[in-house]
Amino acid sequence: MPEVLKAPLVVEFPFTRSLGPVQSAFLTGLRERVVLGVRTAGGRTLVPPVEYDPVTAEEIGDLVEVAPTGTVTTWAWNHEPRRGQPLDTPFAWVLVRLDGADTALLHALDAPGPDTVRTGMRVRVRWAAERSGAITDIACFEPYDGSATGEEPAVHSGEFADKVTGIVAQARLDYVYSPGRAQTGYIHALSGRRTVGERCPSCRKVYVPPRGACPTCGVATSEQVEVGPRGTVTTYCIVNIKAKNLDIEVPYVYAHIALDGADLALHGRIGGIPYDQVRMGLRVEPVWTPGARYPDHYRPTGEPDADYETYKELL
């Protein structure tokens, strides 16, 4: 088989998320260097606070202020920090029970090495220099030599000026995409300006582009069949809104094109004809630009239109 194709693929999605009243107070509090917890009906103080009691599912909202100091309940030494993590030098992941809280918060602990970290050690919040109302307003924790005062956490109204009501959660994941056997063959053929599909051994239909399986019969396809280059417009639409990062003048026509010999229509842009003259049955051929690995668009061949009966099964 030909060399397997691979290409980098970056998926980025900045989700905008709204906050409930408790999360809003907590994250705004971090911006103001105040750590808030929430009290459950059972008298426990949850930090980080949640909107609903994790045991009873009851809506909760009685806020208290806990200390920025606490105790490590478990830890793990991360000698190779990864992208996006709180510190770019080796650090310990820690669960920290802040003084006054009954539950633990996950964050990073900046410590010289694993030998200096232990469960039960005392730590305090190191605030980020610039704070926006996010969990990253805590830059990390750092070792602290004071003991807990044992004071009950004080009731807090949760009121702040200019409360944060949402966060933008940035996410980026990097992949190396490989299209698999059938599509690799298809793409290799395209680079030689040939369109190659695969025939189903059971129903004998030719699929273009091939995906390695017949979607009707559920069996593997492998017999390669060259189709086209000419084909028939089976249906089309007129695009009136410019797509981001796409340098094509609107309006233009995007069509389903059944290449001669194919039993599945592929899609492509129709050019070389005014958009309002494109029609079902129009005969087209691919237009290649130098160096391109796929047709830039399809244009009319000048042949008479195909009879509807010849392509109605491909709609």
């Binding site: 996950l106 964050h107 969990i135 990253t136 966060i167 959660a169």
Partner: peptide
């Protein structure tokens, strides 16, 4: 997504 994902643990 609020308290954990931004830290990429």
């Amino acid at each position: 997504p609020y308290y954990l994902a931004p830290l990429w643990p």
